[in-house]
Nucleic acid binder design. Structure first.
Length: 420
RNA sequence: GCGGCCGUAGCUCAGCCAGGUAGAGCACCCGGUUGUGGUCCGGGAUGUCGCGGGUUCAAGUCCCGUCGGUCGCCCCA
């Protein structure tokens, strides 16, 4: 760092995660992985960057994410690499690479980590953002769809986020299903091209489904009469969707059918869903997911169905508002007097820590009053006071900071008395 | 990528319209005589007024640019 340039900021769209917010993050991510584990989803870690083709072929070159938002770079070996913009394609790549699908199916995997997309930042939308998610791979049963969706909803409720579940089926690519529907939708849009908002006209050919996302009034009016994918599903996809809805009913998972819900990644088939919250303004999606029965093949592997979701930690933390996070300091050791007391305090704090009890103390030479204040601020339940009197008798004064009661106990007994 | 608003102490903000030596609250530190916090009282430290340029005798204040944030569009987690 040169003398003239010493004030760096985190890059645009990124931010430093500092205490106490960092504690809440750990808490939410830990809760997610715990809840996922209850359903048999084991953690998996894939690299932060992948060969660019993983996303081009997996997510789809026509998507906004791949076309405009990826952090792609060439390394010294002249390989094109990309910071992962999402988690599903890498997990499926890893499954195929290690032949995990040759074992018992479905594979149930969970992940948590940062993703990268170069978008214009705003609240709830960052260039590096964290997701937790699960993938259930190798089985196309509707029961798996129901399990995955219920799990996502339960986790969100457990961490205090009120969401609405939007549900749709977007079929599969064949001409008797989404393929035929897209042709019909395109015909419909072409006939009314002049009625669409100007910005939406180029979507007719490029990605007609996305016209459903438009907020332009002219387009919305046109789309009211547009054919719906759910009226054009093939028999198999229709039956699958009916089964998913029935099972969600069994599990008492409330949902809203949203036949205009389309998702931005090309690999989705059949079931598509989104969890939306009213707390987030423009970025109302807390998370979403769906089935991706064609993804493994487009990555060059065996045909392998799958379903999963991803949830945005940044948005979850915003949507749940401020919450108390568990404090880790249980005892604050207060030293009164000279160097001898300070040494005894460090020794007692260390004993407590070795016994697995959170303990802290003043190492900045504060007055007793200052130390008591620190004790309050630390969130500790107990203050253990060591002064001349206590040192002479081998005791400590234990003060319960919640009730202000205090009594003397042997120094060696402190751990037992305060143990939660 | 496009448009609106904003950027002053660690935090939340006032001061800007009508240029004249930088403020409040909270937080932080010390103290209110002998060893007790969360309340109260007194005192204290802290600012390249986001950055760069311009106008002016004089710019936190006006103008331009730039970076960053935020809201909307777009997209999505």
């Amino acid at each position: 760092m040169s003398e003239q340039e010493t004030s760096f900021r985190a890059p645009r769209g990124t931010y430093d995660l500092l205490p106490p917010a960092s504690l809440e993050w750990r808490h939410v991510m830990g809760l997610a992985m715990d809840v996922f584990a209850l359903s048999g989803y084991d953690p998996v870690e894939t690299p932060i960057f992948e060969h660019t083709e993983v996303f081009e072929r997996g997510v789809g070159e026509a998507t906004e994410v791949v076309g405009k938002q990826m952090y792609t770079f060439t390394d010294r070996g002249d390989r094109s690499l990309t910071l992962r913009p999402e988690g599903t394609a890498p997990v499926v790549r890893a499954v195929l690479e290690h032949n995990l699908h040759r074992g018992p199916l479905p594979l149930k995997l969970a992940y948590a980590g940062p993703m990268f997309r170069q978008e214009r930042p705003q609240k709830g939308r960052y260039r590096q953002f964290w997701q937790v998610g699960i993938e259930a791979i190798g089985v196309d049963a509707a029961a798996l769809d129901a399990e995955v969706i219920e799990l996502g909803q339960r986790f969100l409720r457990d961490c205090g986020v009120e969401t609405t579940l939007l549900l749709n089926s977007i079929g599969h690519l064949d001409p008797d299903c989404r393929g035929g529907y897209l042709a019909e939708l395109r015909r419909f849009l072409q006939a009314r091209r002049d009625d669409l908002a100007e910005d939406d006209r180029d979507r007719v050919d490029r990605n007609p489904l996305r016209t459903f996302d438009s907020k332009e009034r002219a387009t919305v009016a046109v789309m009211k009469d547009a054919p719906l994918i759910t009226d054009h599903l093939c028999a198999d996809c229709d039956a699958h969707f009916a089964a998913v809805r029935a099972l969600l009913g069994d599990l008492e998972v409330p949902y809203v059918l949203e036949p205009r819900l389309v998702r931005g990644l090309d690999y989705y088939t059949r079931t598509a869903f989104e969890f939306v919250s009213g707390e987030l303004g423009s970025q109302n999606a807390v998370g979403g997911g769906g089935r991706y029965d064609g993804l493994a093949e487009s990555l060059g592997g065996d045909a392998l169905p799958g379903i999963g979701f991803a949830l945005g930690i940044d948005r979850i933390v915003i949507a749940r508002g401020t919450h108390e996070v568990p404090r880790r300091v249980h005892v604050y050791v207060v030293a009164v007097g000279d160097e001898t007391a300070a040494r005894a305090a460090l020794k007692l704090a260390t004993q407590l820590r070795r016994a697995g009890i959170g303990a802290d103390l003043d190492l900045a030479g504060r007055s007793m009053k200052g130390q008591m204040k620190q004790a309050s601020g630390s969130g500790a339940r107990w203050a253990a006071i060591l002064g001349e009197r206590e040192l002479a008798s081998g005791k400590a004064t234990l003060k319960d900071l919640t009730t202000s009661d205090q009594r003397e106990v042997d120094v060696d007994q402190v751990a037992e008395v305060v143990r939660p």
